[in-house]
């Protein structure tokens, strides 16, 4: 049994069997992370470079920790402190790094499709750690693992809402691909200006502009960050108005009369998409998501490091 792909560019390319293999392997790595020695020698002979052309806290630390827990050698690259600021292209940068015998590349880039471009030109295994507004596959995988844990089993037939800035969110797209492949029912909700036209026809998801109705319907709400850095024109009047119409407050949750699990990929805009007492409340599994992130990334690295042909 192995993955059907040599890179993890997006959930779009994965089969449901690939997703199952990654999530099952991640379960075993979760057990490793509970041991007195939280480290295994699997990738002793593998060198991984973390290429971050865009800022990140969680994803970069999570990948680095996953690599170290697998005993890989780790190189960290941040574009702001590199020759990229002197005008070197991404491909030149990567080829220079690879000529120093690096086996795997973890790439984050603000341009959608950057890892796909790289995959056409280099032979090392590439893991997409977020590309522009396209995909963020490891986030969707860790979200799925956290959802399965929260609901105690398969996501088939479960009702999942993705709420907020669907238009600019790579987490939303990866989540939609993954959840529909696992047989979940998906509703995207938010202001009309932040939900792409024809998304329902393209991906088979439901669309709602009413947060309360959506929460009433769903088992889990994955709430996304408003991505102000990717919006070059105002798409809603103010953050305060967004919070009033689409933010999730304690009062709103309590008016539902049912329990909805709250997720958020971070970083949270507190008081915008989530109020603090919701983000830190008992419905929230935000920190479990972060914990699962390391195990999921270990699974992806482990499964892609293998070069069986």
């Amino acid at each position: 049994m192995k993955l059907s792909t040599n890179h993890l560019l997006g959930i779009k390319d994965l089969t449901p069997q690939d997703i199952r293999l990654i999530l099952d392997t991640a379960q075993q790595f979760k057990e490793v992370l509970q041991r007195p020695v939280k480290k295994v020698p699997s990738l002793r002979d593998v060198t991984v470079v973390n290429l971050f052309f865009e800022n990140s806290t969680r994803t970069r630390i999570s990948f680095e920790l996953a690599e170290k827990r697998l005993s890989a050698d780790v190189l960290n690259f941040t574009s702001s402190a590199s020759s990229v600021s002197k005008g070197e292209t991404m491909l030149d940068t990567v080829n220079n790094i690879l000529s120093m015998k690096v086996d795997m590349v973890v790439l984050r880039h603000s341009a959608s499709g950057a890892p796909h471009f790289l995959a056409k030109h280099i032979s090392a295994a590439i893991i997409n750690a977020g590309d522009g507004i396209n995909e963020h596959p490891t986030q969707a995988l860790l979200d799925a693992l956290s959802m399965e844990e929260a609901l105690g089993g398969s996501l088939n037939g479960k009702k999942i809402a993705i709420i907020g800035d669907i238009m600019h969110s790579r987490v939303a797209l990866s989540n939609i691909y993954l959840l529909t492949k696992l047989g979940a029912e998906v509703t995207v909700a938010g202001p009309p200006t932040l939900i792409p036209k024809y998304i329902s026809e393209a991906f088979g998801v439901k669309v709602s502009y009413n947060i309360k109705e959506t929460l009433q319907w769903c088992d889990i709400a994955n709430v996304l960050r408003i991505q102000l850095e990717r919006q070059n024109q105002p798409l809603f009047s103010s953050l305060r108005e967004y919070n009033l119409a689409y933010g999730i407050s304690r009062k709103l949750l309590e008016s539902l009369g049912k329990k909805v699990v709250i997720m958020h990929p971070g970083p949270i805009n507190r008081g915008v998409e989530l109020d603090s007492d919701v983000a830190d409340g008992h419905e929230s599994i935000i920190l479990q998501q972060v914990e699962n992130g390391v195990a999921v990334r270990m699974a992806v690295l482990y499964l892609l490091a293998n070069r069986e042909s």
Binding site: M1, K2, Q28, V40, S42, L303, A305, R307, E308
Partner: peptide, 13 residues
Amino acid sequence: FYRDDVRKQLHVP
């Protein structure tokens, strides 16, 4: 995860 042939053959844990 402790095998000496991780890179040659994929084993499911």
